[in-house]
Each structure stands twice: as C-alpha cells, then as structure tokens.
Amino acid sequence: MNDPAIAVDGLTKQFRGGTRALDGLSLRVSRGGIYALLGPNGAGKTTLIRILATLLRPDGGTALVAGHDVVAEAGRVRQLIGLAGQFAAVDDHLTGRENITMIGRLYGLTRRAATSRAAEILTRIGLDTAADRQVKTYSGGMRRRIDLAASLIGRPQVLFLDEPTTGVDPASRHDLWSLVRDLAADGTTVLLTTQYLDEADQLADRIAVIDHGRLLTEGTATELKDRTGAAVVELDLPPHQLDAAMTALQPLAPRRDRDRILLPAPDGPLTLRHAMGLLDQADLTPTDIALHGPTLDDVFLALTRHNTSRSARSTA
C-alpha cells in the first residue's frame, strides 16, 4: 500500500474562547518510520493528535489515518491506532499487567490472547519485574512506559505518542527511544510530538515544525538544517579584544553574540583558516574556536521567532 499513514489537509480547530489551535494545517506522513511534530507550548500538537485519535472533531479540513477519515470512519480508525497521551492515562489501583490486559480486552482480544500479549509487551518495555505491583507505586518514568505499553497491545498500525519523554530521566529516555525505533522497525508508523530538538533529531525520519497551528517547515533533520544556512564559526576571545576582532574580521561579516563572535562559514574549514589569518595579522588570539553545522535549535529558534514576531505585528 502506498497511500500515506496520515494525510491531513487544511485542518482547522478553534476552541470556544477563541483560541485557534489549528489554522489550516496540512501534512502527510508516509507509512513506516518515525515522524516528529516539533513546536513550542500551545503550538497545536496535542490538538492535532487528539483529532487524529478521534477524540476531537475538527472544524474544517480533513484527516485520514491509514486511509480512513477520522470523523466519518472513526470506529475503523480506532481499530488501527494506539495512543499514549501527554499525561499517562493508567489506573492507579490496578497492577501494570492488569492495566494493559484490560486495554487488550477492550481492543477485542480474547482473555488468553490479552494475557499472553501483555506478558510479551511487559518484557519488551522492561517492566516485567514490576508488572504485578499497583501502578500507584510506579515512578513517573514507569507510568509513561506502562501507558505506552497499553497503547501497543492492540498492535496498532499507527501509533501516536504525545510528548513521550517529558518528565523522564535521561537513561529511561534512551530506553524509550530505542523502543520507539524497534516499533518503527517492525513497520509501525509513529507520530510523536516533542519540544526537544535533540529528540526529533535523534529519532525522527522526518520533522514538521509547527507553531500557532500552522506548518512552518517540514523535512528530514538534514534538510531543515540545510535550509537554515551554512555552517558557523564560533570564536571566543578575551572581552577587551572583542571590538578589535570585530574590525579585523570585517571581510567575513561577523556577528556579535555577547562575548562570542559568529561567522557564517560557507566554505567550512577554509573560512576558519581565513578567519585565523585575519586575527593573526591583528595580533589577536581566540581562547576557543569551533566550527559546526547548524543545529535544529538554530532552525527552530529562527523559525518560531520569525513566526512570533510576524503574528505579533499582525495583531498590533
């Protein structure tokens, strides 16, 4: 099948009280692989996930999941998806095993199938030793994992993870990442939201940056970085040399960032060598030098800053 796992067209959603959470959003997520929705607080990530998971009805536009309309064929969509929401939705009084077995039964598995599948998933997410304890004794990270387990028991084709690693310690975060990679390797399409750029960078095959309910840009991490521009040379100098250095480096279009000078480096190492030559002539010595490609942080900040100032202007 070549149709996309998720096809969103001109989706709008305005909440009562006037917030326009989605403002004509369109995206396409192809089958298999991991797709990240990146955006600041209030960007509309959760709203999009809730619409795709049939929990919320859009005001306009269409959304298809695995080829089925989320409004007209909501029942069919629910058979094909798994959802782990922004806050773990698990039952404190039940054990981890009881929680996911119950969800398995609600997906239509027989008792026996739900039990054996639950055992399999608990092992997979590394919770088998804690499985028979009540969830109220779990740590925050364990709760997230059991919540994720619950979303897996129905063997979803499309899995929605809303900020899966928020509030999770770095080690568990890496565990979750490798679990998500395994799932994708098994053919599940994963749509996740995150506010962490490194998470999108590490995990996602493609990334959509959204803000104010609109798509700002979309592509692979490399494409996004390329679009933002070339590499940068970063120079640290003693504070009293900064002005002199700015003058010396004038041919390379330097930019001051507090105690640091940044140079666009379209020629990479050659630009760096050129810069060093200019500083040498002026008898200036940097305390630290770095040459790096643009990070997703650069992309993200450039895009969302631009967007914020534009919308601030339009409302003014």
Partner: peptide
C-alpha cells in the same frame, strides 16, 4: 481528569461500556 475516558474513547470499544 486522569485521561482514562479519553483512552477508552480512542479504543475500538463499545462506547456505552
């Protein structure tokens, strides 16, 4: 408030249950 109804609503289950 715990999100459990949302989870139920995202499942292919009988709503009334």
């Amino acid at each position: 408030t715990n999100g459990i109804l949302d989870r139920f609503r995202s499942l292919p289950m009988a709503r009334s249950a």
